[in-house]
């Protein structure tokens, strides 16, 4: 990746999510609550020019995850995901 003046997939959400979670969430598989598609968060569509991050489903474009982090407080909205399957470190 070399990017990112405007990164377009979920791989680039790894850093911001590591601010909050101790495991990498981009390798986790999530189910879109709207269309049921399951894929790694890395494979989703990422918009990072909002005041925060917005991750959308590659299948139906529904919002899966929103993250706003001002450095002292973060807001995380996971409404669009039915679940996240996180592979534990071996």
């Amino acid at each position: 990746m070399m990017t990112a003046d405007n990164v377009l997939d979920g791989n680039a959400a790894a850093g911001p999510l590591l601010e909050i979670f101790s495991v990498d969430l981009t390798a986790a598989h999530g189910r879109c609550d709207e269309c049921g598609r399951v894929c790694a968060l890395a494979e989703t569509v990422l918009y990072n020019h909002a005041p925060g991050l917005v991750i959308r489903c590659v299948g139906c474009d529904a919002v899966l995850l929103r993250l706003v982090d001002n450095g002292t407080r973060a807001w995380l909205d996971l409404r669009g995901l039915s679940y996240l399957q996180i592979d534990r470190a071996q």
Binding site: M1, T3, A4, N6, N11, A42, H49
Partner: peptide, 13 residues
């Protein structure tokens, strides 16, 4: 198949 995509539009996060 694993993919990584990038764009090149000048917008800041």
């Amino acid at each position: 198949i694993k993919t990584e995509r990038f764009g090149g539009i000048g917008v800041s996060p």
